[in-house]
């Protein structure tokens, strides 16, 4: 995935002022920044949800995007969500998604409607829909909101497993926890992306 010279403004308020980013295969990366720094705007631009004022985004493989707020259909069950997105991704089956559900610990909710799930379980489904097609690039916006500690740990283990399998994982958060798990860490500040001084290490 390659992002070049991306600018974005909401009316006169410039949020992104020239973002350059290259996500290489097999890396686990993080972007941190304060509330309102433009992290979600950047991910929306990168995922194609938002058109940048200027600049280009290029994906060379399939990607998955997990939005900050769980985007689900409250009338449909977890299994129906999987079925809907299986069709979207043109997958032969949902075995991969079921493995992800197993890792995140919510297989017991398969027949529950999204509208009655707890916030944490909705977020697990939100994450599952983003990666059930085994994307080469995974874009995650505050993915562990509402997770309990055990799920939080398993989420990071999953992210590392994906990285080790050659996938690129980009996690955006306003908190700079777990930077030690990251290969690269950037800070979004003033509309620009800079390597975080705290650094990152594998």
């Amino acid at each position: 995935m390659e992002v070049r010279g991306v600018h974005h403004a909401y009316r006169r308020r410039a949020v992104l002022r020239g973002i350059d980013l290259r996500l290489r295969a097999g890396t686990l990366c993080g972007i941190v920044g304060e509330n309102g720094a433009g992290k979600s705007t950047l991910l929306k631009v990168v995922s194609g949800e938002l058109r940048p004022t200027r600049g280009t985004v290029r994906h060379t493989g399939r990607f998955g995007y997990c939005p900050q707020h769980a985007v689900l259909n409250d009338a449909l069950t977890v299994r129906q969500h999987l079925s809907f997105f299986r069709t979207a991704y043109r997958l032969a089956d949902v075995r991969y998604a079921e493995e992800v559900m197993e890792v995140l610990g919510f297989t017991g909710y398969a027949e529950e409607r999204a509208g009655v799930l707890s916030g944490g379980t909705r977020q697990k489904l939100n994450v599952t829909l983003a990666l059930m097609h085994d994307p080469q690039v995974l874009l995650l916006d505050e993915p562990y909101q509402g997770f309990d500690w055990d799920t939080y740990q398993r989420f990071w283990d999953l992210a590392v497993r994906l990285r080790n399998a050659g996938r690129s994982v980009l996690v955006v958060s306003h908190l700079a926890y777990d930077t030690a798990r990251l290969d690269e860490l950037w800070r979004l500040d003033g509309g620009l992306l800079r390597p975080d001084e705290a650094g990152a290490g594998a």
Binding site: V57, Y89, V100, D134, P135, R161
Partner: peptide
């Protein structure tokens, strides 16, 4: 920009094993 290409029918890929 490519839309997510389909995996082939029957070509299921498993989740990478923990390492």
């Amino acid at each position: 920009a490519p839309a997510p290409p389909p995996r082939q029918e029957g070509g299921t890929v498993g989740l990478p094993a923990p390492r």
